[in-house]
Structures are given as C-alpha cells and as structure tokens.
Simulated scan of single mutants.
Amino acid sequence: MAAFGSVFMPEMALTTFDGNGWSATEIVDADAISLHPGAHVLHYASTCFEGLKAFRHDDGSINIFRMDANIARMIQSSRLLSLPEPSAQQLEEMIISIVKRFAADVPEPPGSMYIRPTHIGTEPAIGKAANPSLTSMLYVLLSPVGDYFSGGIRPLRLLLEQNGSRCAAHMGMIKSGGNYASALQPILTARKAVNADQVLFCPDGDVQETGAANFLLIDGNEIITKALDSTFLHGITRNSILTLARDMGMTVSERNLSVDELLERASKPHSEAALSGTAAVLTPVGTLIEDGKEYQVGSGEQGPTTEKLRAALNAVQWGKTPDTHDWLTRV
C-alpha cells in the first residue's frame, strides 16, 4: 500500500497573483507548475499550506470538514508571511470545484480525500531576503488516503525537549513548511537516541506541541492543553476535539502546563495523553521520556477517553451523527 499522502489526483485548482490581483481559477495538471530558480519561496521560504479532508457519507454525498476554519487560517498564515492575501471566496470555490471534479475518487470511511491548499511566493528576486514576494501562486492538491491506523493503533513515545522550540516563537501560529523543517532534525535525533516517535517541545519547561501535532493531557474528566498564543499552531482538529469534549460535559483547561505537572499527572492510573491532527485525528501517547528516564502515561495504552473523543469526531466526519456545529460543507 502506498504511503499516506503519496498518491495524488492528476489535476489541481490553481490561481496566481501578479502584483495587482488574482487570476481566474484554472484546473491544470498536478505536475504543471513552473518556477524560476530564483523564486522567493525557494530562497526565503515564503510558503504556507493547509490540510483538510473530504468524506464520503452513506448517502453517497461528499462532505468537506471545517473548510471555513482552514481557509481563515490560510489567510492568516499568508498575512503573517507577508504573502498576497488570498480571497476567501475564491479559495472556497477552488476547493469545492476540485473536490467535485474527483468526487468519484473519494474513498469510503475510514478513508478520505486529503486536501492540500498551498501558497508560495514566486517573484524571481534573490535580493529580497528582507522584503516580501510581490507575486505568488495558490493551488489546491488532492490525495486520496486510507485509514491512518491501518496497521493498528500504537501508543506513541514522546521525548520531552526543554532546551529548544519547534520553531521561532513568532512563527508558531503560521502553518508554514519552515516550521516543520526546523523540527525535523530534533525528531530524527530522538528516534535514533531513545526510539521516540516524536519530540514534545517544552521550552523552559512550558509544554507546547510536537513537531507535527498539538498535545492534550487527559486527567479523568479534564483535558489540559496550552492556551492559544503565537508560539504554536492553532490546530483545527484540536479545536474540534475540545468542542466535543465540552459537549460531553468534560472540563477543558486551556492554560500553561509545566513539565513537572505533566509528569505528575501522567503517572496517575487513569491518565491519558494524545496528539491531535488532521491525518490521525487523535493518537494516544503511551510513554514520555525526560532526561533519560521513561514515564508511562496511565496504562501505557490507548485510554477510553481518547478512543471516545476520536470516535465522536469521526462520527461527525462520516455522517453517522448530527453535525450540530455546522462543520460539514456538502459538495
């Protein structure tokens, strides 16, 4: 089976900004783009992207999950990177049109169609290290994906890193490729050194996020996660999980969480921890590694609350339960 996100639909939606305005949307071959080797994105990382999914329901309809939130975040990322601001209406039309075009290829649950809007600075100007790109390209790529847990759910091992951050603090809330690149070396080092799956960045003892997902601690009926600020990504899956947790009567505490408190709470028999993100929704964490010592989270396996929350979100995405928060856009 192909690796998650490595198969693409043959066409994508595309528009360009010429310094004055956005072009009409085109449907082009997915491998059709051409960039000057001096393009701003290739030298100064003027790029942001989004990740969202379309799901097939039992009635055959195709439904995109939380498209409005992803569009809003992409506009915010573009603004913070000083890229030309996309039109929310045009981006929505691009997403819907390309998903409709390949509606027949949307897999049945637990599979989905992964949607990847991408915005890059295209101006050929290597002298603009301290200036934004005046031109850009925005495209929407599709990738049909299967069950993220096809090999079975395995609780993750996280290395706690207190001496470094995932990215520069003022860049954290931007969904930019450079943030993922800056986290890659620490992740690879942690895999080799302690067989960790991911690094949980906790600069100066402040528990933030991993290289590619938000972190949640579950202590009985309470979910604890860092309050939103500019230092980490404002995950849409995170927001969805917290909303469903409140619907279930759980206490949601968005606040600072220290490494000491995390390790103390995680050691309780009923505690759970999880990572939230578009691809895996909610992935259990079984082990925390700090200063050469391993700490088991609760039972060390997936806990019932993690399973319940993931199932609740999947039920909305798959059309198995009412969409009370208007998260789905039917195409």
Rank of each mutant, 00 (worst) to 15 (best):
S165T: 06
S165C: 03
Y114I: 14
S143R: 02
L134V: 07
G127A: 02
S176L: 08
P109L: 11
L158M: 00
A183K: 05
I115L: 00
E123T: 15
G177I: 13
T135K: 08
Q198P: 09
N163G: 10
S97K: 13
M137E: 11
P144W: 00
N195L: 03
G177D: 10
D197F: 04
R116H: 08
I224C: 07
L184S: 13
C202W: 08
I153W: 07
R157D: 00
S97E: 12
I126W: 03
G146W: 11
A129K: 04
T231E: 02
G178W: 04
T135D: 00
P203Y: 09
S143V: 02
M113L: 15
P109H: 03
G127L: 08
V199R: 07
M94F: 11
V194D: 11
N195F: 06
L228C: 09
D229R: 00
L158D: 03
L228M: 08
I120N: 09
Y180P: 10
R154Q: 13
L184T: 13
G111W: 13
I96F: 05
N163S: 14
I218L: 05
S230F: 12
G177M: 07
S87Y: 07
H170D: 15
L159N: 02
S136Q: 07
V145R: 04
A88H: 06
S143A: 14
M137L: 05
P110E: 07
G220F: 06
Y148I: 08
A168K: 11
G211K: 07
L141R: 12
L142D: 01
R154E: 07
A196K: 09
Q208N: 06
G178T: 09
I115C: 02
A183D: 13
G111F: 10
D206E: 13
A212Y: 11
F215P: 05
F149A: 06
I153A: 05
E222S: 14
L184Q: 10
I218M: 02
L228I: 15
A169F: 04
M173V: 01
V145Y: 01
T210L: 05
P107G: 03
A130K: 12
V194T: 14
G211Q: 03
G152C: 04
E209M: 12
I187Y: 03
P110G: 00
